[in-house]
Design a protein around this nucleic acid. Structure first.
Ligand SMILES: [Mn+2]
Ligand SMILES: [Mn+2]
Ligand SMILES: [Zn+2]
Ligand SMILES: [Zn+2]
Lengths: 145, 145
DNA sequence: CATGATAACGCAACTCAGTTGCATTTGTCA
DNA sequence: TGACAAATGCAACTGAGTTGCGTTATCATG
């Protein structure tokens, strides 16, 4: 908790961002969370703070953090954007279609990157990033089928 | 044109779907299009038909076609759903971040599927499908930067 | 500590994709 | 041809995200 707070203050200082209650709370959520977060989840969590936080503020905050490269977005198949720390290395997700649980996965991408380069050359396309997500059923949800 | 019409009527008959103007028009669009289509594009195109078509109808139609396995959806990073024929083999896309042009790509997925199986086993997750999209700049848009 | 510049904030009104309920029209098949 | 289900239109709604504008809080500087 205390070490988190200092870590966050360092990040904010390094990025010329003022320290505000909302900012601290969001950064804390990102550091603690195992899964990417949606805005509705953030608002839910922030609502327990005295006086709550307006959704506009959250959206503007996320824009800032993204601009500074502190967080990045993930698309997980529904209509929402999800956000997670950019400092977590590039990785992909396993998404349970049933319970919506999300797991980070760490896979070997060498072969994928090789294919990427080949295509890039063939089509004259410069590839800047890719999105790769896996959908299926987690252990628990398989049994209940 | 004529051969398309018959092809479509066969598909519809095989799936117990009545033949309607909207349905024919949409199927025709899907058959002819090189790219996945968004609802706004479909409505745009359908608006030239006499009396146009209501967006509710289009959404309901897409639901039907998806249910019958005739079309499938793709997420391309914006807030819209895109639709394309499911009969096109499983493939991925190159998306130009500048001009929004979309290209189908056909790549070797063996290595990806191998990784998929490995992860699946390790995590006890059943993987049903994946989504893999590449973002970057097409040949034209690179020069204009 | 005081204070001004400006970053951060709240609120209300808006956009845009997609959904729902209900009454009407249309396609199909007997 | 008519009955019946499927398809349609319309209006009102939801939920995620955006915008303009006036107010408040943070923080560097003196
Ligand atoms: Mn993650
Ligand atoms: Mn395609
Ligand atoms: Zn699950
Ligand atoms: Zn382009």
């Amino acid at each position: 908790m205390k070490q988190y707070t200092e870590e966050i203050m360092d990040i904010l200082k390094a990025n010329n961002l003022r320290m505000t209650k909302t900012r601290m709370a969001l950064m804390m959520m990102f550091l603690k969370s195992e899964e990417p977060l949606s805005v509705s989840e953030m608002l839910e969590a922030l609502s327990s703070m005295k006086r709550g936080v307006n959704k506009t503020t959250v959206y503007r905050e996320l824009e800032q953090l993204q601009l500074k490269g502190i967080i990045s977005t993930v698309q997980l198949g529904d209509r929402k954007q999800y956000y997670e720390l950019a400092s977590r290395d590039h990785h992909h997700h396993l998404i349970c279609l049933e319970c919506k649980q999300i797991e980070d996965i760490d896979m070997n991408e060498e072969k994928l990157l090789a294919e990427e380069k080949k295509m890039s050359r063939k089509k004259g396309f410069v590839i800047l990033r890719h999105s790769l997500e896996f959908f299926g059923l987690c252990k628990q949800c398989q049994c209940q089928e």
